[in-house]
């Protein structure tokens, strides 16, 4: 098993236990996320990937364990301190979770108004900037979420998650439901923004192309804990049958081949 511990992580999970009634989802789960990396959480259905993400951001309180983000124990922070921590991360929910009564621009402006009290034309400029960074056309600003396609909703959700220029971005299945071109563009967007802004990305995904192309490390969830953390090449050397099947299955091989081809092309 690869070492899951790290010197000075931006997120540090220790001994997390989550249970719903009698069903235990996580038990004695440890995980460290390094500053500036793109880490992906993978695992079979029902291994509690989304639950773990919700636990870190405070939507679900674990039955036991400790969670440190930015070096602060967020389970025992006073409310005001917690609010400050929450402003330093952004979350993209699976279906965007945009406020349906607000336009895209207004959605992006919610955290700006709420936390920073900004007023005036700068609000529209920031909204336009985030919309452009998320790869949406300028006309999207005045549209309501119900008028957007699934991929555009995701981009709009990302734009809102980026509104406060967060230090950590949590993405729940960012490329699910996107066409391959859109998904590849979204992956590239996340990698570019990470390079430009320097945030840390924590994503839950099943997209092997995302794992192969943009993720620095992969954490595999199983047996109620994080079984392995490591790079894609570490994953390929694992012997656990589920991991072997996941990464050496036809889709896994195709993703690795595509990556190799791209790298050869970039080098040549």
């Amino acid at each position: 098993m690869a070492d899951t511990r790290d010197e000075n992580p931006i997120i540090r999970l220790r001994g997390i236990r989550n249970a719903f009634g009698r069903q235990v989802v996580h038990d004695k789960l440890d995980l460290d996320v390094r500053r500036g990396e793109i880490i992906a959480l993978v695992g079979g259905s029902g291994t509690g990937k989304s639950v773990l993400l919700r636990t870190i951001v405070g939507l679900n309180r674990p039955a036991a364990g400790s969670i440190e983000v930015f070096g602060q124990d967020i389970l025992h922070l006073p409310v005001i301190e917690r609010r400050k921590v929450e402003q330093r991360w952004g979350i993209l929910f699976q279906n965007g979770a945009l406020f349906s009564s607000l336009t895209v621009a207004q959605n992006i402006q919610v955290p700006l108004k709420e936390h920073l009290g900004l007023k005036g034309p700068i609000l529209d400029e920031i909204a336009a900037l985030k919309i452009a960074l998320a790869g949406l056309p300028p006309e999207a600003a005045d549209k309501y979420p119900s008028e957007l396609s699934g991929g555009m909703k995701k981009r709009a959700g990302l734009a809102r998650a980026l509104a406060l220029d967060p230090e950590i971005v949590f993405l729940d299945e960012p490329t699910a439901g996107l066409d391959p071109i859109g998904a590849a563009a979204f992956d590239q967007l996340i990698a570019d923004l990470r390079d430009a802004i320097g945030f840390t990305v924590f994503l839950v995904t099943h997209d092997l192309d995302t794992l192969a192309t943009v993720c620095d490390r992969i954490a595999v969830l199983g047996e109620k804990r994080v079984m392995v953390v490591g790079t894609m090449s570490d994953m390929l050397e694992q012997t656990n049958p589920w991991i072997v099947e996941y990464f050496h299955g036809p889709r896994g091989r195709a993703a690795m081949d595509a990556k190799a081809r791209n790298e050869a092309r970039d080098a040549g």
Partner: peptide, 16 residues
């Protein structure tokens, strides 16, 4: 890099 990204994001606002 950051300035490059932002410059790419600068485009005329659509007419209302």
């Amino acid at each position: 890099v950051l300035l490059g990204q932002v410059a790419k994001a600068d485009r005329p606002a659509p007419e209302k």
